[in-house]
Amino acid sequence: MDTSPRILFVCLGNICRSPAAEGVVRAMDPTLTLDSCGTGGWHVGEAPYGPMQQAAMARGYDLSDLRARQFTPKDFARFDLILCMDGQNLEDVEAQRPNGAKTPVRLFTDYAPQLGADKVPDPYYTRDFDGALDLIESCAKGLLKSLN
């Protein structure tokens, strides 16, 4: 029986940060059950944003099979850990928490405290796709270390 945690990554539109986090962690540990989603529904069904896919692919992370979906309260039952890319995502997820749901919701950056970052900045707006990936890789390493 698989006892590894089911982990969900959440950002705003599910086209940059959370699919990148899913792809990076999947590449680092393909045995984990992972998914990503957005708090907004603007991009449901779309592939990750082209420039994010290109930046990820340059590092060996293929995001092309991922498709955006929107967070739902059912995700609290489907996952053991929900990791948000920024504080607003975390607030939006917590606002949908069903009564009695115990699934922890944390910031992804909690897994790289040495960096002093309180969010993964959205490269859709900052245009810093490599900077976002640098941070995501550091958080992913910290996450995997915490699971061992």
Rank of each mutant, 00 (worst) to 15 (best):
D2H: 12
D2G: 12
P5G: 13
R6K: 13
R6V: 10
L8T: 06
F9L: 01
V10W: 12
V10P: 12
C11Q: 03
I15E: 04
P19K: 08
P19I: 03
A20E: 03
A21D: 02
A21T: 08
A21L: 09
V25A: 06
R26C: 03
R26G: 05
R26N: 01
A27G: 15
D29L: 09
D29W: 13
P30C: 13
T31Y: 05
L32W: 05
T33C: 13
L34Y: 00
C37R: 09
C37A: 14
G38L: 09
G38C: 08
T39F: 02
G41Y: 10
W42L: 07
H43I: 02
V44G: 01
E46A: 14
A47G: 09
Y49A: 02
Y49V: 05
P51R: 04
M52W: 14
Q54D: 12
A55M: 12
A55H: 04
M57P: 00
A58E: 03
A58C: 14
G60Y: 03
Y61G: 00
Y61C: 03
Y61K: 02
L63P: 07
D65Y: 10
R67D: 00
R69E: 02
R69F: 08
F71I: 00
F71D: 00
F71S: 07
T72G: 01
P73S: 04
D75V: 06
D75S: 02
F76W: 02
D80P: 04
L81R: 01
I82Y: 00
L83G: 06
C84F: 14
M85E: 00
M85C: 04
D86M: 09
D86K: 13
D86W: 10
D86V: 05
Q88A: 09
N89W: 02
D92E: 06
D92W: 09
Q96M: 06
Q96S: 00
N99A: 15
N99W: 14
K102G: 04
P104Q: 06
V105W: 07
V105L: 03
L107R: 08
F108Y: 14
D110A: 15
D110F: 12
Y111V: 12
A112Q: 07
K119F: 05
P123G: 09
Y124P: 09
Y124F: 03
Y124Q: 06
T126E: 12
F129N: 05
F129T: 15
D130G: 01
A132D: 10
L135T: 11
L135I: 10
L135V: 07
K141E: 09
G142L: 12
L143Q: 05
K145E: 15
S146Q: 08
N148P: 11
